[in-house]
C-alpha cells in the first residue's frame, strides 16, 4: 500500500535530463537487492533440493540442483524413526512459554521504569542497563548448578527459567512505554483506574507493535537456542529441535538427506510466524526502542 505514493512523494517532478540516471540508479538498487537475496537463500535452495534426493543420488558429481527422482523418503524416515514431533513440541513449549512470560513480566517492569515514581528507580534501571552486558554463556556453570539443585534437569522448567533472566526486554519495553504521552495514563488515573488497570487497559493495547517485536525476537532466540538445551537436557525425549536435529549427525556418517529434511521442517514454523508478523518489525518500532 502506498508504495507508489511514496515513490511519487520523494521525487514529484523528475527532471527530464536526469531521467536516464534515475532509472539506472533504480536498476542498480534492484541488482544489489537481488544479489543479496540470492546469496541469502542459495544454501536454502541446496538444502531443499537435497531433502528430496534419494541416498543414491546424493553424491553425484557435479551435484544436481534438481533431484532426478524426487522422493519423500528422507521426510518419512525422519518422522518415523526419530521423535521429531516430540522435539518440535518441546521447542514450542519452551519458546512459547518464555515468550509469554517475558511479555508480561518485561512490560510490567518497563511500565514501572517508564512511568512510575519511586525511590531507587534510576539506580535500578542502571543495574538493568549494566546487566545487558552480562553474557549468558559465562553463567552456564552456575545456572546449571542452580537448575540441578532445583531438580529441574531434563524438565521444561529447566529449559524455560534461565531464559527469563535477560533484561533486554525490560529495556525495550521501557523505551516503548516512555514514548507514550503521559496525559493518557493521567487521564486513566483520573478516570478511576488503578495502576494495574492503566497497565492492562491503556498501556498494553497501545504498545502492541512493541510487544510483537519483543515477542518475535524472544521466540526466535529461544527457538534457535542451542547451548543451554545441550547442557540441561540429556534425555532424548526432552530434546528441543536444535539439540534433536544435531543428534542426527552425531553418529559417524552424516545422512545429508535426513539432515536436510530436518532442517527444512524445523525452520518452517519460524519462517511462517515471521512472514505473518514482519510488518510490525519495521513500523519504526525498533527505532523507537533504541532512542536513548
Amino acid at each position: 500500500m502506498g508504495a507508489e505514493g511514496r515513490a511519487l512523494a520523494r521525487d514529484p517532478q523528475p527532471k527530464p535530463g536526469r531521467f536516464g540516471g534515475k532509472s539506472l540508479y533504480t536498476i542498480a538498487i534492484y541488482v544489489i537487492l537481488i544479489v543479496a537475496v540470492f546469496i541469502s537463500l542459495l544454501p536454502f535452495g541446496y538444502v531443499v533440493s537435497t531433502s528430496f534426493k534419494s541416498t543414491m543420488s546424493l553424491f553425484s558429481y557435479p551435484p544436481d540442483w534438481l533431484p532426478e527422482n524426487p522422493t519423500l523418503d528422507n521426510y518419512r524416515n525422519l518422522l518415523n524413526r526419530y521423535p521429531f514431533w516430540r522435539w518440535l513440541f518441546n521447542s514450542f513449549v519452551v519458546a512459547g512459554s518464555v515468550t509469554a512470560i517475558k511479555l508480561v513480566v518485561d512490560s510490567m517492569a518497563g511500565y514501572a521504569f517508564a512511568k512510575m515514581r519511586f525511590p531507587g528507580r534510576d539506580a535500578l534501571f542502571l543495574v538493568v542497563l549494566m546487566s545487558l552486558m552480562v553474557p549468558f554463556a559465562a553463567l552456564l556453570i552456575p545456572t546449571f548448578i542452580i537448575i540441578r539443585e532445583l531438580g529441574m534437569l531434563n524438565t521444561y522448567w529447566g529449559l524455560i527459567l534461565p531464559g527469563l533472566a535477560s533484561p533486554i526486554g525490560v529495556f525495550m519495553m521501557r523505551q516503548f512505554i516512555e514514548s507514550l504521552p503521559s496525559d493518557l495514563e493521567n487521564a486513566a488515573r483520573l478516570d478511576g483506574c488503578s495502576e494495574f488497570q492503566i497497565y492492562r487497559r491503556v498501556i498494553l493495547p497501545l504498545i502492541k507493535p512493541g510487544l510483537v517485536v519483543l515477542g518475535v525476537f524472544t521466540f526466535m532466540t529461544q527457538w534457535t537456542s542451542y547451548l543451554w538445551p545441550l547442557v540441561v537436557v540429556t534425555k532424548p525425549e526432552m530434546a528441543t529441535l536444535t539439540v534433536g536435529v544435531r543428534s542426527l549427525t552425531s553418529t559417524f556418517t552424516q545422512d545429508w538427506g535426513l539432515n536436510s529434511a530436518a532442517a527444512i521442517l524445523s525452520m518452517l514454523p519460524t519462517i511462517l510466524v515471521f512472514i505473518f508478523l514482519q510488518r510490525y518489525f519495521i513500523a519504526g518500532s525498533i527505532a523507537g526502542a533504541l532512542k536513548e
Partner: peptide, 16 residues
C-alpha cells in the same frame, strides 16, 4: 486522583 470526584480535560485531549 480517581477518588477525588474531579474530571479533567487535557490540552492534548488524551483520548484513548
Amino acid at each position: 486522583p480517581g477518588d477525588r470526584n474531579v474530571a479533567m480535560v487535557f490540552q492534548s485531549y488524551a483520548l484513548y
